[in-house]
Design a protein around this nucleic acid. Structure first.
Length: 813
RNA sequence: GCCGGGGUGGCGGAAUUGGUAGACGCGCCGGAUUCAAAAUCCGGUUUCUUCGGAAGUGCGAGUUCGAUUCUCGCCCUCGGCACCA
């Protein structure tokens, strides 16, 4: 017997797989395909436990599916553009490309050491021109089709560093490096019309049974479809403002209007009013992200302008309010303090009238009444319910042309411009005469210069590199300037899963192979991507489809959202400095232990609070398994045992346990995706077999079947050890090419079943009952039990509930 | 603030369709082995208890013969909120 040496066993298995190209796959119509994908990593440095968990999850699924006989594609690559590389450039005076490539190399070595079944021949990195040229190409297509447009939009501006900051770089309203107060600045940026796809993105969610309900709900709410009225209000000395409301039934309760600080009306009001100008400046210092907007103190100022109420003709004051979003609806709202809590608070603060126009439960002296009900104080609309009022109002406004029914989405178009260096250049050229012109396809890619130097401010180097931006107009050949903004990195991560099907293809964005592999059968990634990445990728896939590049409607059939790996209660991330380095654990225990533990510690969808303790347990288990199997192999001495004749009770029980475990593990991996319980079941079986010391022929046959099944079932988790044990059993094949063990239905037949007896829901006895016993027999048996009698004796039996194969509940009083 | 999760022994977690709460593992306790220790193996381990039992799954109600599971109201916590990825 040899002792278990994980380092040796693991390197040996890895070499074996590499030599046999076990995980390099080609399109093969003779076998069912299975595309298993984990979200690719950002090359931040070393791997952390979140990575290990993520890739082990897809690994287990991929290896399991391969053992079901499928042609499994499991690729890997790097989401290589992004902010941390620029931060590192400032800090270490190293070009972002150099830092990124070094990290990729390090992470690749770690991935290989973990023995993941990746098809490395398909590796890609999004910062390579071969990759991003097609992203630029697609942008140009969309530009020409009108799915791309340019408009003014707000960014965080650091007035000291003279640079745009990411939300993450704004801490308590101040620039992370300069400490200066960040202000809102409006600059022109490029947008993709994701809202054109809002309806389909919403509707498709109803036909995606492989996605978790929670993610679908979040996406539905994010898209936020609503039906309302858009109404025009006339404002004297200004003109017309439009508002959108989903509650036209409360129109008679409007006591003021509110516009966003960036609204043209607000800007006009500030022209001759220094106080208003100061107020708008204050608003410009407030953060524009939704969380801040929703929680900050509600402030407003009267513009001095009044709107005319379209139904009553009365004057309604127009206010500027810091909580009105310019980006949603029309940037103006009607305020109904009686029936909207935010309007209510604002009205209370500024002494604006609060009137009740809906008859519903509530007390207007303390809070708004937000429930729907019958209209009151609403002239001819009195007595109508919400639906009647909505329709009647819609009809009336339509007739006089001042309002219309409108479907609105909360979803906004996707702003893809970033004023950063380390990203894919936006393929646009600005010409004084021709305007914004797309870079012609034959001039793509627009290559990002990689040898650059960063200054302290973190501003993009290409913005001061004429050799990059100076060019000529593709239309009129006059001197022109390239766009120096780059794409949002979500652009790269929105289609990489498709490019993996043909990573080296140079004839286009995607080859015909894309439709062989797509859609992805199983996608796995962090729950933090539930909305942004997953929605952008869904959108992009539909765009690819409409360009004729893929045939499917959705990119990911099944989605597994893994919980966060937490340390000290917070997301494990490099920026927080609370990461656990798996390298040390691999060196100490081996990759199999680290993989096994990351799957055993918690179910995949739950967040996992990391603790170093417990890894030991996984290592102990593998050691025990190694010892048990190698000891058995010695006893078996190369012989193959098969069952003959009748089995005794203990043998039957052992064989039952083996096949129950195969059934459970198969279900847990293949259907439930609860890998922690699969491992627990295998541990239980291991304990069971090691206590079953039957040396008879049938005993040996059962043990041989048990160990061999167990080695196969543990192989997705601990593939190196499993391979070594498989070889030690005398097999010359590669285990990952073998078929998954099958359940023998005959082994599952039981003639006696244990049932529980309750009296008034409390456990009082356990019974062993013949499998074919009738209800009456079971009932009689339960009532005959001594302990049951004790609790029943002096009472009246009201009823007896028999749940087949489970329990008997005797209800007494 | 809004949207979506989570809360069960000392700890990670299990209970798959409303049916034995605590599987499996960690830790701890006891024993074997050892000169000794580590490792390993065996046994025990929710709490209280008058040893009959009783209580118990964040808190408070409800539905049910029966609730960790369903309903309502709270509390705490994690993720997301459009420029972190």
């Amino acid at each position: 017997m040899t002792t278990y040496n994980p380092q040796q066993v693991e390197l040996h298995a890895q070499k074996l797989w590499e030599t046999h190209k076990s995980f390099e796959v080609k399109a093969d119509d003779s076998r069912e395909k299975y595309y298993c994908l984990s979200m690719f990593p950002y090359p931040s440095g070393k791997l952390h436990m979140g990575h290990v968990r993520n890739y082990t999850l897809s690994e287990v699924i991929a290896r399991y599916q391969k053992m079901q006989g499928k042609n499994v594609l499991q690729p890997i690559g790097y989401d290589a553009f992004g902010l941390p590389a620029e931060n590192a450039a400032i800090k270490h005076k190293k070009a972002p490309a150099e830092w990124t490539y070094a990290n990729m190399q390090e992470m690749t070595a770690q991935f290989k050491r973990l023995g993941f079944a990746f098809d490395w021949s398909r590796e890609l990195a999004t910062c390579q021109p071969d990759y991003y040229r097609w992203e630029q190409w697609m942008f140009v297509q969309l530009f020409e089709q009108g799915l791309v447009y340019r408009k003014d939009s707000v960014v965080n501006w650091d007035p000291v560093d003279q640079t745009v900051l990411a939300n993450e770089q704004v801490i308590d309203g101040k620039g992370w490096r300069s400490g200066a107060e960040v202000i809102r600045k409006t600059i022109p940026q490029w947008f993709l019309k994701i809202t054109d796809y809002a309806e389909e993105l919403l509707e498709s969610l109803d036909h995606m049974p492989g996605w978790p309900d929670s993610v679908k709900t979040m996406q539905r709410n994010w898209i936020g479809k609503s039906k309302g009225l858009e109404l025009d209000f006339q404002v004297e000395n200004f003109g017309q403002i439009s508002i959108y409301t989903t509650r036209p039934d409360t129109l008679y309760g409007v006591s003021y209007m509110a516009v966003a600080p960036e609204h043209p009306l607000a800007l006009q009001a500030a022209e001759n009013n220094p106080e208003m100008a100061t107020f708008l400046q204050q608003c410009a210092k407030e953060q524009s992200n939704e969380a801040a907007m929703a929680t900050m103190e509600k402030k407003g100022m009267y513009t001095g302008l009044d709107a005319t109420h379209p139904l009553t003709g009365k004057k309604v004051p127009v206010w500027v309010a810091n909580f009105v979003l310019m980006t949603y609806g029309t940037g103006a709202v009607m305020a109904v303090p009686g029936h909207d809590q935010r309007d209510f608070e604002f009205a209370q603060k500024y002494g604006l009238p609060i009137t009740q126009v809906i008859d519903a439960e509530g007390d207007l002296s303390t809070a708004a009444i937000t429930e729907k009900g019958v209209l009151i104080n609403s002239e001819t609309f009195n007595g109508m319910d919400f639906t009647q009022a909505f329709e009647a109002m819609a009809k009336q406004f339509k007739a006089d042309g001042t309002g219309r029914v409108q479907i609105n989405y909360r979803l906004r178009d996707w702003g893809v411009s970033r004023q950063r260096y380390w990203g894919c250049p936006i393929p646009i050229i600005y010409c004084d005469d021709c305007g914004a012109v797309a870079v012609p396809a034959e001039q793509l890619p627009v290559v990002l210069p990689e040898n650059v130097e960063f200054d302290e401010t973190g501003g993009s180097p290409i913005k001061r590199m004429p050799e990059f931006y100076a060019t000529s107009c593709p239309k009129c050949a006059a001197p022109a300037k390239r766009e120096t903004d780059t794409f949002d990195t979500f652009m790269e991560s929105s289609w990489y899963y498709a490019r993996y099907t043909c990573p080296q293809y140079s004839g286009g964005m995607l080859s015909e192979e894309a439709d062989h592999w797509l859609p992805v059968d199983q996608y796995i990634g962090g729950i933090e991507h539930a909305i942004l990445h997953l929605l952008y990728a869904r959108f992009y896939h539909k765009v690819l489809r409409d360009q004729g590049l893929v045939k499917s409607d959705e990119p990911f059939v099944n989605l597994l959202t893994q919980g966060m790996v937490l340390k000290d209660g917070a997301k494990m991330s490099k920026s927080k400095g609370n990461t656990v380095d798996p390298q040390d654990l691999i060196e100490q225990y081996g990759a199999d232990t680290v993989r096994l533990f990351s799957m055993f510690a918690a179910p995949p969808e739950q967040s996992l609070e990391w603790s170093d303790e417990g890894v030991e347990g996984a290592a102990r288990y593998l050691n025990r398994l190694w010892f048990q199997v190698t000891t058995f192999n010695e006893a078996a001495a190369g012989q193959v045992f098969s069952l003959t004749g009748e089995l005794d009770k203990a043998q039957q029980a052992m064989r039952l346990k083996v096949h129950q475990t195969i059934e459970k593990v198969t279900q847990d991996i293949g259907v439930r995706q609860t890998f922690n319980t699969a491992i627990a079941a295998m541990m239980e079986l291991t304990n069971g077999i090691s206590k079953f010391n039957d040396d008879s022929n049938n005993g040996m046959a059962i043990r041989q079947e048990a160990w061999s099944s167990l080695v196969k079932m543990i192989s997705p988790f601990a593939p190196h050890m499993a391979q070594a044990l498989w070889a030690a059993m005398g097999h010359s094949t590669i285990l990952c090419d073998e078929m998954w063990p099958k359940v023998d239905p005959a082994a599952l037949i039981q003639d006696e079943i244990e049932m529980v007896v309750q009296v008034n829901g409390k456990l009082r006895a356990k019974l062993s009952v013949a499998a074919d016993a009738s209800k009456a027999e079971i009932e009689a048996l339960a009532l005959a039990d001594e302990n049951v009698q004790k609790f029943v004796a002096d009472k009246t039996i009201r009823k007896v509930i028999v749940v087949p194969n489970r329990l008997i509940n005797v209800v007494v009083s």
